[in-house]
């Protein structure tokens, strides 16, 4: 039977990444039932192979700016759009790579893509999702699976 990481797994992985590179505080991320705000930034990595799908990290524009500021050790007001793209891409890459390690392999991880707004993958659907808040801003991590692979 194929193990699909749980929402708790997504939370633990995200918390580890956030603790290592952003806050140093495991309590900095809180579980929330809320969906991500309309104005959002989404980072995504795709998997192809034994498991085909995507891992997305989506957060408010304000959270994205704060995350970039923390990664680059800058003031949020000084962060450029390129730095936000770089930061959200790398965070999605780290979360995605660690989720990949829990999925059936072998599979290949894509380079991260970052978009302003929401992203949907044609032919795929969300199989796991966790909603969090960081600095009172919404953040969500979701695992997608191509429909052809779905049970």
């Amino acid at each position: 039977m194929t193990y699909i990481p749980s929402a708790d797994d997504l939370e633990v992985i995200t918390r580890e990444v956030w603790t290592s590179f952003l806050d140093g505080d495991p309590a900095g991320l809180l579980v929330s039932g809320d969906d991500v705000a309309v104005e959002r930034v989404t980072g995504c990595v795709h998997l192809s192979g034994a498991y085909t799908g995507s891992i997305m990290l989506s957060c408010s524009g304000s959270a994205a700016r704060d995350a970039a500021a923390a990664l680059f050790s800058m003031q949020p007001g000084d962060v450029t759009q390129n730095e936000i793209i770089d930061a959200i891409g790398e965070l999605a890459n780290m979360v995605g790579g660690n989720v990949k390690s829990m999925l059936p392999g072998p599979s290949v991880l894509s380079l991260p893509a970052v978009v302003q707004g929401q992203l949907a993958v044609p032919g795929a659907h969300v199989v796991r999702e966790v909603h969090l808040t960081w600095r009172n801003e919404p953040l969500a991590v979701s695992l997608w699976q191509q429909a052809a692979q779905a049970a």
Binding site: N93, G97, N98, K100, S101, G105, P106, L109
Partner: peptide
């Protein structure tokens, strides 16, 4: 790297 598959 984030690449953590044993085979990799």
């Amino acid at each position: 790297t984030t690449e953590s598959e044993q085979s990799q």
